[in-house]
Amino acid sequence: MALRNHPSETPDIAALKLRATSLRRHMLAMASGQGAGYIGQGLGMADVLAALYFHELRHDPGDVTWAERDRFLLSTGHYSIALWAALAEAGVLPVAELSTYGADDSRLDMSTLDTTPGVEVIGGSLGHGLGQGVGQALGLRLDKSPARVFVELSDGEMQEGATWEAAMSASSFRLDNLVALIDCNGIQADGKVVLDMEPVADKWRAFGWETQEIDGNDMAAVVGALKAARAAGGKPHAIVLRTLPGRGVPTLETREKAHFVRVDPGEWNDLIREFEKEAANG
């Protein structure tokens, strides 16, 4: 049985990087087994998920309903591949089950449903996560719970107006137990982000959020930003994460940026070899 996780006073950046590598390995196995998947987005967010599940989040892999757990809400349900990898690595789901990703009757769906252990809300209808995070943060505050709420959302998702409805309410309600993790990977369904979203960080600041902007693939930066976001100053926290889709597999890092990255069936073994070579070089 895996132990409860809580933030370490002295985070081991090298160990967290190894966790991120392990998450990427799981994801590549899942995507190659399925022949498809949101591998670009998943690889891009691996460092953030490793930092959350193996450092920042207070959670109990043996009891995903623990009342005082920190909540992680994945608003972009299609990033499920990354969440399944993190939940399996953390001991919530069996690693062997990852091979069922996207298969009929599997719990590890292509887009998240909350019937799978460890999933806090149904993701995938973009714009839904942050408002539900506001409600959970309000509810936890009413209960005087120490638990915090982390909501992942994406740059494309900021085009949904409800994101800003939620952003306005979070700062009005002074929810400093709420952290928005905004994955800015520059892609959305139609390809490169179709509207000019910049300056992203200024938008969140203007909406009353304590805002940081970092390289989301730099583990030390991610860990540092998460620590800073613990501050109880009466403001919700936003971390703008600049991530590289396909991170860790050079061919995918440079491939044309697409919502559903094109990988030919015969390519997967080469990509995995490429990834292992990169991982071995640290």
């Binding site: 408002g131 539900q132 409600g135 409805e165 309410s169 009005s172």
Partner: peptide, 21 residues
Amino acid sequence: FNVGMAEQNLVAVAAGLARTG
């Protein structure tokens, strides 16, 4: 809680509150 003129957020915030019992 008055969320202002934002009905999508009204329902989302209510859902989040319900998730905390």
